[in-house]
Computed example of a mutant assay.
Amino acid sequence: MKKHVVIFEVRGGSDKGAYGYRSDSKPIIDSLNKRGWSAEIIFYSDEARGEIYRYVVDKAGAYISRVNPGNLADETGYFQMLRELVSQNVEALPHPDAMINYGAKNAIEKLKGTDLVPDDVITYYDFEAFKASFPLMLKTGPRVLKQNRGSTGEGIWKVEIAKKVEDDKGNLTLKTKVKLTEAKDNHIEEKYLGDFIDFCVTYLDGPSGLLLDMPFLPRIKEGEIRVFMLRREPVYVVHKKPVETADAFSATLFSGAKYTYENPDQYPTLISKVKTNLNTILEKLGGYDIPLIWTLDFILDNDENGEDKYILGEINASCVGFSTHLDLSEQIADEVIRLMEADCVINPRWPAYTS
Rank of each mutant, 00 (worst) to 15 (best):
H4E: 12
H4I: 10
V6K: 00
V6L: 05
F8C: 12
E9Y: 00
G12C: 07
D15V: 10
G17N: 08
R22Y: 03
S25E: 09
S25M: 03
I29W: 11
D30H: 11
S31H: 09
N33H: 12
K34H: 12
S38M: 13
A39Y: 11
Y44L: 01
E47L: 13
I52C: 02
I52D: 01
R54W: 09
D58W: 06
Y63Q: 06
V67T: 07
E75N: 06
G77N: 09
Y78T: 00
L85G: 06
V90Q: 06
E91I: 15
L93A: 09
G103Y: 07
K105T: 12
N106E: 10
I108T: 14
L111C: 01
D115G: 09
L116M: 04
V117Y: 02
Y125F: 15
Y125K: 12
F130M: 15
F130P: 00
F130R: 05
K131P: 05
K139E: 09
G141A: 07
L145P: 08
K146S: 01
Q147M: 14
Q147S: 14
T152C: 12
E160Q: 15
K163C: 13
K164D: 11
D168V: 11
L174V: 13
K177G: 08
D185A: 14
N186I: 00
G206N: 11
G209I: 02
L210M: 15
D213M: 08
M214I: 13
F216A: 10
L217H: 06
L217A: 04
P218I: 05
I220L: 01
E222G: 01
E224K: 09
F228N: 02
F228V: 11
R232I: 01
E233R: 04
V235A: 03
H239F: 01
S250L: 10
L253Y: 05
F254T: 13
F254A: 10
Y259G: 08
N263G: 01
Y267V: 11
P268L: 01
S272W: 03
S272N: 15
T276L: 11
L278M: 14
T280N: 11
L285F: 05
L285A: 06
G286L: 00
D289F: 02
L292T: 07
L292P: 01
W294I: 00
W294S: 00
T295K: 03
E307K: 07
D308Y: 02
K309M: 13
Y310F: 15
E314V: 04
E314G: 05
S318P: 05
T324C: 08
L326W: 05
E330C: 02
E330M: 03
E330R: 02
I332L: 03
D334C: 06
L339W: 11
D343R: 15
P348H: 08
R349V: 15
Y353G: 03
T354Y: 04
